[in-house]
Design a protein around this nucleic acid. Structure first.
Length: 209
DNA sequence: GCGACAG
DNA sequence: ATCTTGTCGC
């Protein structure tokens, strides 16, 4: 698939994103997703499902395969989606919410990895990135839980959210079928001890093993 | 044109 | 992402 075809695919799928659904009533299982990189252009898609209340791991799958697309900013999903979908297919527990390592709405074409994964699976998704990629934002106050909006072309596309006092914020954006307010509530609830949400930390560890 | 650019 | 020494701040 070429760069042009990938961009056209994003434009085609973007209208299918649901940004109005506030999110699931009850979240019993949350999945974290991440991709690790090996030597010979290999990628490992990792998905870890945690019980939402206790954060205990209830299921996990890692799939290693050849990368089918280069890393291109803005087309991140075309590199990471295949191994992630392969791992999702082998899950025995169906998650109620997906926490993705990367952006959702906060994307040049408003269709980051979290949106793409949401549309393809139909599941509620949120995007959590470690660095700023698009838009502008102020540094939020130092207290845990404080945030400031990420603005792109005058629109709010996400939030810089402080998950630990005095530590660099994470960048949260809507993926699919979850409001921005609820996405941030979930991220805070899932990050009791560290900067990143526990499901993402678990998936990150798995993707490296 | 130049620099920046999720992982 | 990953590799990877030295350096900075608390």
């Amino acid at each position: 698939m070429s760069i042009e075809e990938a961009e056209a695919e994003q434009e085609r799928l973007r209208p299918l994103v649901d940004l109005d659904d506030p999110g699931p009533e009850r979240v019993e299982f949350v999945a974290g997703l991440d991709v690790g990189y090996g030597g010979d252009d290999e990628v490992t898609g990792a998905v870890v499902v945690l019980r939402s209340g206790t954060l205990e791991v209830v299921d996990q799958v890692a799939v290693r395969q050849r990368a089918g697309f280069p890393y291109v900013p803005g087309l991140f999903a075309f590199r990471e989606l295949p191994p992630l979908l392969a791992a999702m297919d082998r899950l025995s527990v169906r998650p109620d919410l997906l926490v993705c390592d990367g952006y959702g709405l906060a994307h040049p074409r408003r269709f980051g990895l979290a949106c793409h994964l949401g549309v393809l699976t139909g599941l509620p998704t949120i995007g959590v990135a470690k660095t700023a990629f698009v838009g502008r934002h102020d540094d939020p106050p130092a207290a845990r839980g404080s945030w400031s909006p990420i603005l792109l072309d005058g629109e709010v596309v996400g939030r810089a959210l402080r998950t630990r006092e005095g530590v660099k914020p994470v960048f949260v954006s809507q993926g699919h079928r979850v409001s921005l307010d609820n996405a941030c509530s979930h991220v805070l609830r899932l990050s009791p001890d560290f900067r990143l949400p526990e499901p993402i930390r678990a998936a990150d560890r798995l993707s490296r093993s």
